[in-house]
C-alpha cells in the first residue's frame, strides 16, 4: 500500500489527517466562542453533539485521525532518525529560513497530545462520555457543558492555573500548526514558486485563526475567574 510504503504516501497521510484535524479544531473553536456570547447557545450545540449517531461517528473519526496522525508521526520520526545514520553531527548551527517548530514537530505533538488527554478528562469525560455511557462522571447534567467549562476555569486559583496552562497549550498548538498547515499544503502538492511565500502566510493565518477563538474563550474565563476572586 503506497500510503504506508512510500515516503510521499506517508507524508500525504500526515498532511490529510492533519488538515482534517485543523478543520475539526476550527469548528471546535467556533463552538467554544459561543460560550462568550451565550451559554444557552453553547449548551444547544452540546445537546446537538451529544449521543446522536452522527456525533458519535464524528468523535470516533476524530479519534481515529488523531491516532493515525500520531502513529505516523512516531513512525516517520523513528525512520528518519535511522536515516541520519549512526554518527551525529558534532556541530549543528541554525539554518537560515528553517523555523524551530519545523524541526521539533514531534515534541510539539507530544505536548499537544498530553493536553488532549487532560482536556478529555476535564471536559469530554464529563460531557459526551457521560451521556453515552450513562455513567455519572460529574456534578452537572452531561448536556450542560457550559456549567462544566465555567466550573473548571473559574474555580479560584486552580481555574486560573488551568487557564494559563491552556493558553500555553494554544501557543504550542500555534507553533505546530504554523509549520503543519504549510507543510500539509506542500505535501499535498499545493505549492509552487509563486505561492511559496503565500503558503507560509496562509499557514500562519490558519494557525492564528484556529488558536484565536480558543484563546479568546480562555482569556474570557481567566478574566471572569480573577473578577470572582
Amino acid at each position: 500500500m503506497w500510503l504506508k510504503d512510500s515516503s510521499i504516501g506517508r507524508k500525504f497521510v500526515m498532511a490529510l489527517s492533519g488538515a482534517a484535524l485543523v478543520f475539526f479544531l476550527l469548528f471546535h473553536g467556533c463552538m467554544n466562542l459561543a460560550l462568550v456570547f451565550s451559554e444557552e447557545a453553547y449548551n444547544a450545540i452540546c445537546r446537538f453533539l451529544g449521543a446522536n449517531w452522527y456525533a458519535v461517528i464524528g468523535s470516533l473519526g476524530i479519534a481515529f485521525l488523531v491516532l493515525v496522525h500520531f502513529c505516523y508521526g512516531l513512525y516517520l520520526t523513528v525512520m528518519n532518525r535511522a536515516a541520519r545514520g549512526n554518527d551525529r553531527y558534532a556541530v549543528t548551527d541554525k539554518k537560515k529560513g528553517v523555523t524551530w517548530e519545523s524541526e521539533n514537530m514531534l515534541v510539539l505533538g507530544f505536548v499537544i497530545l498530553g493536553f488532549i488527554c487532560l482536556h478529555l478528562y476535564n471536559l469530554w469525560y464529563k460531557m459526551q462520555f457521560a451521556e453515552l455511557t450513562g455513567i455519572e462522571t460529574g456534578v452537572f447534567d452531561p448536556q450542560n457543558g457550559a456549567a462544566y467549562v465555567k466550573a473548571l476555569f473559574t474555580e479560584p486559583i486552580w481555574g486560573q492555573v488551568y487557564c494559563v496552562l491552556y493558553l500555553l497549550w494554544f501557543v504550542v498548538l500555534w507553533l505546530h500548526l504554523n509549520h503543519g498547515v504549510g507543510s500539509a499544503m506542500t505535501s499535498m502538492g499545493l505549492n509552487n514558486l509563486k505561492w511559496q511565500k503565500r503558503v507560509e502566510v496562509i499557514s500562519t493565518v490558519v494557525a492564528t485563526l484556529v488558536v484565536l477563538p480558543f484563546t479568546v474563550v480562555a482569556l474570557y474565563y481567566l478574566g471572569m475567574g480573577i473578577a470572582m476572586l
Partner: peptide, 14 residues
Amino acid sequence: GFGNCTNTGACAAE
C-alpha cells in the same frame, strides 16, 4: 534508506 521529508526547508536553505 533516505528519510521522509517533513518540509523543514533545510535542504533549500543549504
